[in-house]
Design a protein around this nucleic acid. Structure first.
Lengths: 216, 216
DNA sequence: TGGCCACAGGATAGATACAACGCGTACGCA
DNA sequence: TGCGTACGCGTTGTATCTATCCTGTGGCCA
């Protein structure tokens, strides 16, 4: 048999294609995508394309203009501020709620932290970024609130568009991130909610300083 | 001319139809909707139905099962808890941020409160519920965070499914709601953030007591 | 009688065909 | 030359058709 693996659904392929394209700037902010283009690019019909675009609009990555096309939303200062503010709200809440932390959570966090360290040391920054993301998501998910967990995932996606390059280019920043993660883990282990919240606050709001005025 | 008005897009009609159906319990939780049924019911083809169902899934009202149909999600205790927790998080944050409140905000809130009072006095509980909702939404929107504003709207929609009847049936509760709104407005006017947060907390978490164990 | 397999029914997933709409352009008229 | 209108192209919106997949049912065999 030539292709024993079953292809993922066409709608998902389009979704991933566009999302990746938007996230890593292959599609510039302000670009106007049309269903036909995307259909050709991915090799499917327009129907699944419509589906994917609809999902992406809900996530706030694009905006659908009737009879015109899908506008790749440029990153605005407003959006950056909103994302950071919302992340702060969700993550601080999660950190506060994660105290006292169950051993299973602490264990998973320690594991993720080790993994990220190893990946950073090996120079695999992309993988490290994934681990970074998992670390935060794990804390949020430990709160057990599905609404907040889903929201948080979306926030991280949107944040990916805003200056990821900087994260990857500065080893200093990586080290600082790791140190802060360690600090968060320590605070959670110690059951010190306010300390954990404080570190999370620093950790997240650092980004807003960096992003200020860097709207491209 | 018979129908001079232009019909809204078919997808929107389906969306509204299903959403209303789910919200006012015409479609029971646990029911399995099929695209064909809905297409016939609204009088459009299945394509816009798909679109509408997709949007509703993102909002968390239904769950799409591949090759099976659209399950109207039953209200679970988990969902109630999540909605209330998230509302608390968002609304308390909004209340805190709304201090000091600009006069324009206070003005709009006072206006909405008066309107709701009049509607409640006139016995138009449905309209009063709409005003109630606007009151809260206005505070959240004043924060200027689009992500939180959109999230909040979704939360209110979902909460509509959980025991609205109770709200409408007890005039006592209406009176209490109005009193609490007045209290919130007073606290905001006075610039007392913590007082406002406290009232909001009471106001929102009242619902969780009511909903506990009342999962239908 | 119990379990397995084949088949049929119904649903979605995807492709394609058609209609309606909007926008820009170019032509015509004043 | 300037403005208004009409035409044409491109895009989305909707409908319909086909293929694929899942599920439940029925019969057959051990």
């Amino acid at each position: 048999m030539a292709t024993p693996v079953k292809q993922p659904p066409a709608a998902d392929r389009v979704y991933t294609h566009v999302k990746q394209g938007v996230l890593d700037r292959r599609y510039e902010g302000g670009a106007l995508l049309t269903e036909g283009e995307l259909a050709d690019a991915v090799g499917v019909s327009r129907t699944p394309v419509r589906e994917a675009l609809l999902r992406l609009e809900v996530e706030g990555l694009i905006r659908l203009y009737p009879k015109k096309g899908a506008l790749v939303l440029p990153v605005s200062a407003q959006e950056i501020a909103d994302v950071v503010e919302t992340r702060l709200l969700v993550e601080e809440h999660a950190a506060r709620k994660a105290v006292p932390a169950p051993p299973s959570l602490l264990e998973r966090l320690a594991e993720l932290l080790e993994k990220q360290k190893a990946q950073a040391a090996a120079g695999d920054f992309a993988a490290a970024a994934v681990s970074d993301r998992c670390f935060h998501a794990e804390i949020v998910r430990s709160g057990g609130n599905e609404i907040l967990s889903r929201l948080y995932d979306q926030l991280r996606d949107r944040q990916l568009r805003m200056g990821v390059a900087v994260m990857h280019s500065h080893p200093d920043r990586i080290a600082k991130t790791l140190a802060e993660h360690e600090e968060i883990l320590r605070a959670l282990s110690a059951g010190d909610a306010e300390a954990a919240v404080g570190v999370v606050h620093r950790h997240v709001s650092w980004f807003s300083h960096l992003a200020r005025g860097e709207v491209r």
